[in-house]
Nucleic acid binder design. Structure first.
Lengths: 233, 233
DNA sequence: CGAAGCCTTGATGCGCCTCAACGTACGTGG
DNA sequence: CCACGTACGTTGAGGCGCATCAAGGCTTCG
């Protein structure tokens, strides 16, 4: 654990609006940790001992079914809270969190949750907005799964990733962490085969460019047309 | 608007733990309203002027897609809060709310949200637990849609409805509000045709009994087996 | 008593999963 | 640094689950 400087977090959404000296106090309670790629940060079902802030990197949140199927609930980008079981009144984590790349993570003991939210209502408000946004997001995904075809859902997923974490390159927008066909299939409820076929087709049409675990979006608006379902019919 | 007695709400989860006199104050701010069956309580996209508590009845929360498809997000039972856009930091309702039967609804102006949550932290805590539970629920549904077949999802939906709102009769557990094949298809992402076929098949095997807009679960455990995916293979 | 809404049941087709096989990039140890 | 093993990706063939299309029967209510 290293020394933490307030400047690290002062511009991060969940902490916006909190006084400098209070931030210092908050940070003094936190533990900072480097997590290397593919390491598990917490596991589904495990007692929720801590909650987390991602300082740097990307984290994959994955649900596992009794018979071993995996579903990716979301990707966490730097600056986001995660593993906030306490905010939801849960005693254990509802999913696995895995580092998609090398990460830097802050963590607080779960027992501090009420202390912190009571002392810093701004933090509480910010957090509940996050939870609200995620609920929204989940509902939208349900609608998507219920009404759209695989092609649209995959297009949508790729677009969202590009918008959320995209890095502009000279070719287009690159999703800046390693992501496999399988990962995308687990985000969209399909198989890696179907994703592979779609990406191949899109690459032929010049909409995307992809290499192993890398995807670059070239013609975002055309992808958006597919996502909206106006592919042809 | 009628006079409201504290005894009406004192045992309702969101208000549990609040003093009698405080409850009286809360109620004095609320408006009570009868809503007849099929009436819309609020609409998707509409500015979130109020939040609601269902005192009696059942409310259907429905999302509508741009091209007119409907997806049922959830059914609200009496004693539950709904339309709490404020808690999620939303300016407008994300779905339609429709009375599934004649209902009694309390409503508070959205502008009171912060006042109330600040003055009654118990209420805030209870509410955020509700939101947390709904997020959980939504995530589970995503996993379900991604990994299970239609038959399992429909079995699951019927079971959940029976557990949530079931009334014991001499034949079995009756879902105690009118629900059509179409409704169930909109909960599970399928078509009314498929739901009809499934219910017919189950009725032949004695698992359920159904009439127009009525469903009685007879052999719940057998339905649970189907929901778990061990129908045969 | 008629019309509208709900339900049932068959026939048909297609989207996508499944199974299978092979190609290709990566990283690890000899 | 090259060779090999492993993980990832591609592509084809086949089949099944479920949507779609179609038509008719049954309740409920005005």
């Amino acid at each position: 654990m290293s020394l933490l400087d307030v400047s690290l977090v002062i511009d991060i959404p969940p902490f916006r609006g909190i006084e400098r000296e209070n931030l210092a106090e908050l940070l003094s309670w936190a533990r900072s940790e480097r997590v290397e790629k593919d390491r598990t940060i917490f596991s589904q079902g495990e007692e929720a001992h801590s909650f987390f802030l991602l300082l740097d990197g990307h984290v994959r949140v994955v649900k596992v079914t009794p018979d071993g199927d995996q579903v990716i609930a979301r990707y966490i980008s730097s600056g986001e809270l995660f593993g906030i079981a306490q905010a939801l009144g849960l005693g254990s984590y509802p999913a696995n969190a895995v580092a998609a790349v090398d990460c830097v993570v802050l963590s607080w003991p779960g027992s501090l949750w009420t202390t912190i939210t009571e002392k810093y209502p701004t933090f509480a408000t910010n957090t509940y907005k996050t939870v609200g946004a995620r609920l929204q997001d989940a509902q939208d995904r349900i609608v998507e799964m219920a009404t759209e075809r695989v092609e649209q859902r995959v297009a949508n997923a790729v677009l969202k990733l590009a918008n959320q974490t995209g890095k502009k390159t000279d070719e287009g927008i690159l999703i800046d962490f390693p992501i496999s066909r399988q990962d995308i299939s687990e985000m969209t409820g399909t198989t890696l085969h179907t994703v592979s076929r779609l990406l191949s087709a899109w690459e032929n049409e010049g909409l995307v460019k992809s290499r192993r675990k890398k995807i670059t979006v070239i013609e975002g608006h055309k992808l958006a047309v597919i996502a909206a379902g106006n592919s042809d019919k």
